[in-house]
Amino acid sequence: MARETAISTGNARGVDRKNRGFLHELWKFVSRKPFGAFGAAMTLLLVVTAIFAPVIAHFDPLATDQTSVLLPPGADHLAGTDQFGRDVFSRLVYGARVSLFVGLGASFLALIPGIVIGIMSAYFRGLFDYIVQRVVDAVQAIPGIILLIAIMVVLGGSLVNVIIALALPRAISSSRVMRGSTMQISNSEYVTAARALGADDARIMIRHILPNIVSPIIVIVSLGFGEFILAEATLSFLGYGIQPPAPSWGGMLSVEGRAYMFAAPWLLWGPAIALSLVVFGVNMFGDALRDVLDPRLRGTR
């Protein structure tokens, strides 16, 4: 009897602790990884802004208004207006959509080929692996932005093409990480056991290897996300990315910002601050995620 009570109170306390637990765990995370928490908040802010852009922005990001040109920030236009009378704040808000879309789009587009090439390369080895590894070497030797510009020149500037150009080299270079992880696992006993039981290659790769390389995959995606956002901004800044009048933070900095940088410096502040905060936040979030998921990779950047 006494024993039963002890168990039941134990349970009750367990439930209680679980409720308090979430806030407690959250606080523990915030106090232990303040940058990571800040990064998570920034990433969340980006996602929310992108999803609710039409609610947050009071103006059409593309609507020009000749009566309110180059207005400084004020009550009506929170971040001022540009040379066509477009509301800068609304353009910033819709720019978040572009950034998020590019980040997510390129991450997912690069993911599947990266995984497939990586696993196959490690699994089959031999000539196939040798050729793939030389391709990875070649792609990694060319500085990212130069390769991107070269691809964009041939593809032509548009949102979809930016995503393709970002994903292509990424799929190739990320396959090396997947390959490394697969190599470790394909020597393990449960893979040998699966093979002894008569599982074919496809089954081993999908059922036994893939689930075990999920952590490096998440880490690669989270670190790539910030790089993609930054690369899109750089491309658009140089004029090879998303073409005006579509709002992209990098494009806003160069097309609007540079032309009027002395007369209307607020055209620079908005996109510069938004871009820096988001890249910082996403990177910090990725770092924290990496520490939690894959301690071996700590400090590799």
Binding site: A233, T234, L253, S254, R258, F262, A272, S276, V279, F280
Partner: peptide, 17 residues
């Protein structure tokens, strides 16, 4: 960490402006 996150072209632009 801030130094890693600031985009090159934002810093360059700031130095110009």
């Amino acid at each position: 960490i801030a130094g890693i996150s600031l985009p090159n072209f934002v810093v360059a632009q700031a130095i110009v402006v």
